[in-house]
Simulated assay, not measured.
Amino acid sequence: MSAALMMLLAAHAAGPETAVDAERAFYRAAQTDGQWTAFRRFATDDAVMFTPQPVRAQEVLPKKDPPIAVQWWPAHSYVSCDGTVAVNTGPWVRPNGSGYFSTVWERQADGHWKWVMDHGDGLSAPRPLPEEPKVRRAACKFPRGKVVGVTFGEEPGEHGQGISDDGTLAWIWRVRPDGSRTFTARLWNGRKFETVVRDEVAAPAAS
């Protein structure tokens, strides 16, 4: 048996790629190929970032990679029951700072994942990192045969949101007029939607 065939069979036996696998591959590409090169490669065409206003990542990502890429690791991964959408969150560090990130991933037609929203903020110290990412999947139990619709309420400012095909993982970002923003992800637990990620980013300091 050829080495290539053995590798193919091993990959098949390991099961489909997970959102944690995608996050780790994204990280490795940033370290080996360049930070912004990896960001572009792993993003969808309409992926969103914040500057602090929402912008299309593919249009604003720098062409030149920094000499040292940011380092980050998934600490928690929340996945829809059907496995089509995931939200990963965890710490990042770089030579002059640390913080956290939250990234929304969507499974593509070829089975691989790409990110559709990425954001984060600085912290005085990075968030704790478990030895292995804590993965939580939405419940696949649906009273009355379907998921009860999720609501996020109303707030001023621009927003974008999404939901998995089966309706078990929903997320929304909001940017207020002052540039502050929130990101919220809610996971179906079999009885109701539970908020599993709630990020608050302050407005940028006045220049």
Rank of each mutant, 00 (worst) to 15 (best):
P52R: 10
D82W: 05
T18H: 05
V116T: 15
D46K: 13
E194A: 11
E23I: 04
T168V: 03
I163V: 08
H112M: 01
A206Y: 03
W36L: 13
T195N: 11
K141I: 09
W92I: 02
Q108G: 07
A75H: 04
G111H: 04
D21M: 09
P52S: 11
D65I: 08
K146F: 01
P126H: 04
A29D: 15
T44Q: 13
M117W: 01
K63N: 14
R40Q: 07
E154Q: 10
D21L: 10
M6C: 12
G167Q: 01
V70H: 03
V85P: 08
L61G: 07
W36E: 10
G120P: 04
A4W: 12
Q161L: 01
V196H: 12
F42E: 02
R28A: 15
Q161A: 06
R176F: 09
A25K: 10
K114C: 03
M1K: 06
A202E: 13
Q58Y: 03
K134I: 15
G153Q: 06
P52C: 07
L9N: 12
T51N: 12
V135K: 06
D178P: 05
R24K: 11
D118Q: 05
G149R: 09
I163R: 00
G153C: 08
G15Q: 14
W105Y: 13
G153Y: 08
P54T: 05
A75Y: 02
R198Q: 09
S164H: 01
A206H: 09
Y27H: 15
G34A: 13
Q31E: 14
G97M: 01
V147Y: 04
A38S: 15
V175Q: 13
F42D: 01
K146V: 01
R181P: 02
F152Q: 05
A38P: 15
S207M: 06
P130E: 00
G153H: 07
A38L: 15
T37G: 11
S180R: 01
D199Y: 00
Q58R: 14
A139R: 04
V175D: 10
K146S: 05
E194S: 12
V93G: 03
Q71V: 02
V87Q: 08
D65K: 04
M7C: 14
W73F: 01
V104W: 08
L8P: 00
D110G: 07
N189Q: 07
G153A: 08
A22G: 05
N88F: 04
M49S: 14
E194C: 10
V70D: 04
P91E: 07
A30G: 15
P156C: 07
M117G: 00
G97D: 01
W36R: 09
Q161Y: 01
V85N: 08
L187A: 00
V55L: 14
